[in-house]
Amino acid sequence: MRYMLLLYGCDDRPQPGDPGFEEALARVNAFAEECHRRGTYVAGDPLRRSSTATTVRVEDGKTLITDGPFAETHEQLGGYYILDCRNLDEALELAALCPMAQRGPVEVRPLDEIPGAWRGPADIQRAAVAEG
């Protein structure tokens, strides 16, 4: 089952050149490699700061655009991973291993699969591999 790890409270991360950047990068890479070694890694990306977010709403056919993220919470979404795990236990274990979990909460959500929904090229390839 595929899970999304939503990484909160880590959008204020060290940038290249900042003190501690190299160490932080090495920890994040080690985590991603561990996920890959276990055969779970599907995707993962950092997000730019929540101050760069723009929210779009469509109401009565009108598009409303507002500055900022949808949820004005203390801890903002800072990145994500998608991991293909044996079960929730494995996903929770990897979430706890993730270096970003030291900085903020990690929400673990299973991805849903809707029969008949259009699937992107990556998914079609994945399904083909799974079916051998």
Binding site: M1, Y3, C85, R86, N87, L88, D89, E93, P110
Partner: peptide, 14 residues
């Protein structure tokens, strides 16, 4: 069912 909690005794390290 939906979050993939499998029906088993957890792995030794857990």
């Amino acid at each position: 069912r939906d979050a993939g909690i499998t029906f088993q005794v957890p792995a030794d390290h857990l």
